[in-house]
Write a protein that binds this DNA or RNA. Structure first.
Ligand SMILES: [Mn+2]
Ligand SMILES: [Mn+2]
Ligand SMILES: [Zn+2]
Ligand SMILES: [Zn+2]
Lengths: 139, 139
DNA sequence: ACATATTTGCAATTGTGTTGCAAATTTTAT
DNA sequence: ATAAAATTTGCAACACAATTGCAAATATGT
């Protein structure tokens, strides 16, 4: 359990607990985004479902992880790479969901393009999700 | 209860029932997308929860309505304007969600832009949702 | 090491969506 | 118009996800 993870918690003024270390560690080693269920399964020493919910919520508020709005309305979470801060996310990248392996990936380098909206609409934030086959799954 | 609505059901080889007429009528007169709960509330003669679920599912399969993937992972539905057919949707437009009144609107004329994906990713479908203030709500 | 603050786990509760089945309604055939 | 067949509806039961209150456990600051 890396020291860097512990520091990240401290930097964000959070108590350092086993659950938080374990969950944060999962995110750092996961190949893609994680759902609540993924975390529940992977946890070695069992973490209570409720604790997982609360931990994810806290991480999200602190700007450590962000939610990914998938087309099938399942909730997934991934690490924020950018300068997200408490209460202010800046994850303006495209997300990719594989239709075969259903891995969900942050395309950190692909920015969500601007679109010209009809008169009167005032945009604040844009989300874009692309479905298809990931590099592992395309035939 | 318009005759046109009745015809739409017939054209899609569906039995004409009160629930379906009523729900379809709601969509035609709604200012934006509807959630399951909206329909349940608005229904004058009460329609059973289950019937609403099943009706929405059928309409979606028939290509009459499409789901909208919002950032808060709630499910909303709106009429398909284009040539959507049974099992094949072609709603490639941007959706707008107002952060103030939370009205959800199909921007039928705003196409989802293409993005260049990293090597190996094979896109099938893209979704884009823009949050902000709608024309009624911006100050 | 102790007092204080925070987090955790459990039980209970709420919310959302699904399924099986009998009754009601709609469609089709007579 | 009537009757038979096909479809849809409503209810009850269920499954699963998520939230809340609260006491016990753990972490933090001195
Ligand atoms: Mn992301
Ligand atoms: Mn739409
Ligand atoms: Zn894949
Ligand atoms: Zn608005």
């Amino acid at each position: 359990m890396s020291e860097a993870i512990k520091d990240l918690l401290k930097k964000n003024h959070m108590s350092v607990t086993d659950s938080r270390l374990q969950i944060l560690d999962m995110f750092y080693h996961a190949p893609g985004a994680l759902a609540h269920a993924d975390i529940e399964k992977k946890a070695s020493d069992k973490i209570d479902r409720v604790t997982i919910y609360r931990t994810l919520q806290t991480f999200e508020e602190k700007g450590i992880i962000h939610t990914i709005p998938t087309a099938d309305n399942s909730v997934k979470y991934a690490l924020c790479k950018d300068q997200c801060a408490e209460g202010h996310h800046h994850d303006n990248h495209v997300h990719f969901v594989c239709d075969k392996c259903s891995k969900t990936i942050c395309l950190d380098d692909v920015h969500v393009p601007e679109v010209k909206l009809p008169k009167g609409f005032q945009p604040h934030q844009s989300n874009m999700v692309v479905n298809g086959f990931c590099s592992d799954c395309r035939s």
